[in-house]
Design a protein around this nucleic acid. Structure first.
Lengths: 125, 125
DNA sequence: GCAAGTAGTTACCTTTAGGTAAGTAAAGGA
DNA sequence: TCCTTTACTTACCTAAAGGTAACTACTTGC
């Protein structure tokens, strides 16, 4: 990703390089809510993600120290994932992001309903 | 981007699709701090971004209603950018993100200094 | 008449991200 | 004997993202 290059400039770019990217925030969100999930459970909660992608994201999150991987060599193997201490520190940010997202979502729906049925009044900018 | 697909599932994914991507958070950050910047000023603050990229990012931010574009047809033209009301609502999140980023940055530097000079003590997990 | 200056656009090319599909280990059950 | 299960890995292919470089408009100043 192009971000990795300027992690030196701005620490925020560095963190964004770690949590951004397809599915990554969603994985973090799920682990934040459910504490511990096995590979298959994560997979089931994200039906559209391929095993390759999921593995890839988890490996990267592990490499940046946000997610902990617990591998038990049973047969078949049992692998579960959870947030590390550092991963948990994202809770507030994820929460804040979610609040704004929810608010905008409500606004957009209201806007749309207003447009199709009501008077021409709309909030500009 | 792969995110656009599941904006229906989770509003957070939608917002991330808008603010993620190379340079985008940095642009937001600059506009949040400096209120209004001309194209050339943004360009000067990000020496590594190409005109094409910058235009592209700004167009997308404008399309999602986070950035306002003010075009004055002087010669040569004067174009300045600022955050919209909605764009300004990201202030808290960007701030929170920055705090965590700064903290981790300090920790990582301390860790590294510790590794090269000190005893073998390190925070595990 | 020519260069400069702003804010782009356009064309072309390369790189990379991501998708699909198949393969793997190892033990237990039918 | 072979299928099942889990958690991947590997190989291959395609679509899209991003880089570079050249071109545009229009007027002022030399």
């Amino acid at each position: 990703m192009a971000h990795q290059k300027n992690s030196n400039q701005c620490p925020m770019e560095s963190i964004l390089g770690q949590i951004m990217g397809p599915w990554t925030p969603y994985i973090l969100w799920l682990l934040d809510n459910e504490k511990t999930l096995r590979f298959g459970e994560l997979s089931a909660r994200m039906p559209d993600i391929s095993a390759k992608m999921l593995t890839d994201r988890l490996r990267k999150l592990e490499a940046s120290g946000l997610v902990h991987r617990d591998y038990r060599p049973t047969v078949p193997p049992t692998v579960s994932y959870s947030l590390t201490k550092r991963g948990k520190e994202l809770h507030g940010v994820l929460q804040g992001l979610n609040e704004v997202a929810l608010r905008w979502d409500v606004e957009d729906r209201a806007q749309e309903a207003n447009r199709s049925s009501g008077s021409g009044i709309a909030a500009a900018e």
